[in-house]
Design a binder for these strands. Structure first.
Lengths: 345, 345
DNA sequence: TTGTACGCGTTATCAA
DNA sequence: TTGATAACGCGTACAA
């Protein structure tokens, strides 16, 4: 069943049917009714491919995400897809992994599908060596490219991010001002946002006139599924003579590993050890004591990213860079400034 | 840049260019080289819309998933997308939510996009009243429909699932045979697979000739993010006089809530309370003691689902129903049959 | 081995 | 207000 069939059955031309389909108002009401009733009776739907060919768009956007089973990225994808569909776009999802070559391939695939826009979820797509970002710049010359939690200054690239540096700084300052002198910083990635977090950690010490001891900045080289591994990693650091009375982590799973270490070694939280995670994920509430964590307002970021995306596709002028703040959520692994020290369970 | 431009630059016809593009072997090698070099020099890519219009396919499949931020569903989407892309298909993802109407809308959208196949991830799409499943049957008359962890017998519908009933039965039997007399069963959904799990729980009692006390089957009416809520829920049950020495849950987060309850009330695990979760998610390792859980082999399920999907699309005859078994993973919240009772930490 | 010409189902332009 | 028709870019009979 195509537009010709409908036009014949309705006794009009295909042009008129097309006008009815697309809601043009220069159609006599009685004609419109006739056409609509025929379409309804036949259960007719316009062919999306033909429409795509003519209009050179199928109202689709490509989402690139290294690993959609990562809790944080999965949430981002969920929010983005929802808002985009509300806006009349559908999403082609690609889980690219963390290797540049497969990321490139995924982008080529999306471009070959003629998506209207490409969204990069997370900062793993940005290379420290800028010439390796050419694949992104090239894409941006064809379609708008949206970056979530990453930053790249270039025509056609739009960034929406949380100020991870400042948020981490705030968290670190909280620990310092709570009297913690030895704050272990755990991280597991060298991505753009990971670097910003490390920067925030260091800057907090500067602000307080303290020299930052680099031995306290530790890279966990393992899977985000391996909490046991984190626990052992922290344990090893202790055994090697590193003393710490607080742990700040670039991801909740690292912080949970630190809590596990404390529990197993009879270290009381938060009195002897204070712990802060990042992302404010469900992991924060499945451990005891529950984990304080930095919330980087993912839903807000995603809503704005899609707003800017759709605005751009509609021809509106949109900001190239949009930055939101993060927020430290106090639970049971930190001493809240409003509480007295002894009141924490 | 289109096929006409390439044909002119290469001094051949569009038919020859098309033959080169599609790898036909009836092209003189020198001609092929010429065409390929022109295409490469121009960075030419065939227009996917035009191709789609002619061939009536763009090699895409639609994935419907109630909530891709749910850890379990997110993993499923991740595995499925990866395998499909390896097989030359790309995925249109729709996060439908749990309401039937929005699920219907999402399906209509996918069908209007002419996807080659639709994959329903999870059993929330199946209605208990079969006439409400007409939207699925209708879809299946147009394109193959794949069901993950659900079952529906109908032409064009292919199911891949874990035998949740048997897996739950095994877990329950383990608890019974470990001497647990009062096993609380927690669940939070009335979906197809949720019912199968409940069935498994009940059947275990029958197998041991014990009458199953319905008061021990409890529905948690809350979000899967609300572990605190689960903890309170379990606490309330206890306060109302329900005694239990084991908890079996239809999802890990429920089990983690039960562990939290035990920790807060000084109940020793697994001696005084044994706990088993479901899905073997990362939640199992972020609590102390670590949670025993049923692994329903999601990756295996997804791999097979995609294999059957691609086979079907290639015209091969594929099985309508494929069932795998689950496996109880012992960690620290159960007494492992191989250990002596006292050796558990 | 290669080329010609048409069909795929829309939308948009122009004329009536 | 409506209709005829050209484009969109590809694949593919069929002919050469």
């Amino acid at each position: 069943m195509n537009i010709y069939d409908i036009s014949k059955l309705a006794g009009v031309s295909t042009a008129t049917v097309s006008r009815v389909i697309n809601g043009f108002d220069n159609v006599k009401p009685s004609t419109r009714e006739k056409v609509l009733s025929v379409m309804a009776k036949q259960g007719y739907t316009p062919n999306a491919f033909a429409r795509g060919l003519g209009l050179n768009t199928m109202n689709s956007v490509g989402i690139m995400c290294a690993d959609s089973s990562d809790m944080y990225l999965a949430k981002a994808v969920y929010y983005i897809e929802g808002r985009l569909r509300e806006g009349g776009y559908h999403c082609i999802l690609t889980c690219t992994g963390y290797e540049r070559e497969s990321q490139r391939e995924a982008m080529d695939m999306l471009l070959s599908q003629h998506v209207d826009c490409i969204i990069l979820v997370g900062s793993t797509f940005i290379d420290k060596s800028d010439k390796n970002n050419k694949y992104i710049y090239d894409a941006a010359s064809t379609v708008p490219v949206m970056l979530l939690n990453a930053s790249l200054e270039h025509k056609g690239i739009y960034c929406v991010l949380c100020d991870d540096c400042h948020a981490t700084q705030t968290a670190t300052l909280h620990l310092i001002d709570d009297g913690r002198s030895d704050i272990l910083y755990l991280f597991n990635s060298y991505s753009y946002s990971a670097k910003k977090k490390a920067l925030g950690y260091r800057s907090a010490f500067e602000m307080r006139g303290i020299t930052c001891d680099e031995r306290y900045i530790q890279f966990f080289n393992g899977s985000s599924q391996d909490i046991e591994g984190v626990c052992n990693f922290v344990s090893d650091l202790k055994d090697k003579g590193l003393h710490f009375d607080a742990v700040l982590a670039s991801d909740d799973f690292l912080a949970v590993g630190a809590i596990k270490y404390a529990i197993r070694n009879g270290i009381t939280i938060p009195n002897e050890l204070s712990v802060i995670g990042y992302n404010n994920s469900i992991l924060t509430t499945c451990c005891e004591p529950e984990l304080s964590s930095v919330d980087n307002q993912l839903e807000l970021l995603c809503n704005n990213l899609v707003r800017i995306c759709i605005g751009t596709l509609s021809g509106e002028s949109m900001p190239r860079k949009t930055i939101f703040g993060g927020e430290l959520i106090h639970r049971k692994t930190t001493v809240h400034p409003d509480d007295s020290d002894s009141e924490n369970s």
